[in-house]
Simulated scan of single mutants.
Amino acid sequence: MISSDNSYFNVPHEFTAYLEPWQQESLPDETALKEMQSVGLKLITEVKELENACLLQLRNLDNEAKAVVDFLKLQSRKVDLVLQYVLEKETQHGQKHPGLSFGGSGFTISSATPLTVGQQFKTTLYIREELINILCIATVIATSSEDGVHRGQLEYSAILESDIEQLVQASLRVQQKQLRARKQAQAGS
């Protein structure tokens, strides 16, 4: 679950979000949130948790084990890609929206219809390049419209702590890639 004092930056990046109105009065606790996950989401979450625990132990090995660590990372990436493919084939619930930015506190989407501040949605986020698939409850905290395009800024109201960690790490990786690309573009000018 998330506390209101957590504030992380958002990084511009394209992704897909499925939003389904949350009609219930109370937010789910961590157990209920896990039960709401599809089989595919549960599977990829468990694989990521096992992978992170294993990689932490492997980092303590000496330099000679670097080849083994690199090989295991490659194997892990292959498993993640297969699971991502399986998840993309699952039936999605809710309306599909293009994502504009994300981070550990929330995300921004584009919408064909206006959103209302305070609306809550059961949300599934798919950040393909980072192999992240997350189920959460999100609340609209700000909206804007320009040239018939509506934007909504949402913050997580109910999300697993491990998912926040994944989002924060992914936002840092995306930011690093963007900074490298900007440096290369400036060097090429």
Rank of each mutant, 00 (worst) to 15 (best):
I141M: 08
Y126L: 14
Y8H: 11
Q176H: 09
G99N: 02
V86G: 04
I141R: 15
N6A: 12
N60I: 06
L154E: 03
L74H: 10
V47H: 09
E90V: 02
K78G: 03
T113G: 07
G99W: 08
V149W: 04
E64R: 10
T113A: 14
H13R: 08
A53Q: 13
F71L: 12
W22D: 01
G99F: 11
G152L: 04
L100R: 10
R77M: 13
T116W: 11
P12D: 12
K34W: 09
H93S: 15
A142S: 14
G99P: 00
G40E: 00
V11A: 02
E30F: 06
R180V: 09
Y126W: 08
E14N: 10
S4C: 00
L61F: 13
P98G: 08
Q92D: 04
E155D: 13
Q176R: 14
G152F: 07
F121C: 01
R180C: 00
Q24N: 09
S26H: 10
A187Q: 14
E20I: 05
Q37P: 07
Q175Y: 09
C136F: 11
L160T: 07
H13N: 09
V140I: 05
S26Q: 13
P114C: 03
P28M: 06
N60P: 00
M36C: 10
D80T: 00
G99L: 06
D80N: 14
G188Q: 10
L27P: 04
L55C: 00
W22C: 03
V79K: 02
F71Q: 11
G94D: 01
K122Q: 15
S4R: 12
N52K: 11
P28I: 03
L74T: 11
A170N: 01
Q75H: 11
Y156G: 03
I141C: 03
Q57N: 06
S171V: 02
H97K: 04
Q178R: 13
P98Y: 09
T16L: 14
F9V: 07
T139D: 05
A158E: 08
Q184V: 05
S7C: 03
T139I: 06
A65D: 08
P21Y: 08
S101K: 05
L50S: 11
Q186M: 15
A53T: 12
D80G: 05
N133R: 09
L167W: 06
L160I: 07
N52P: 00
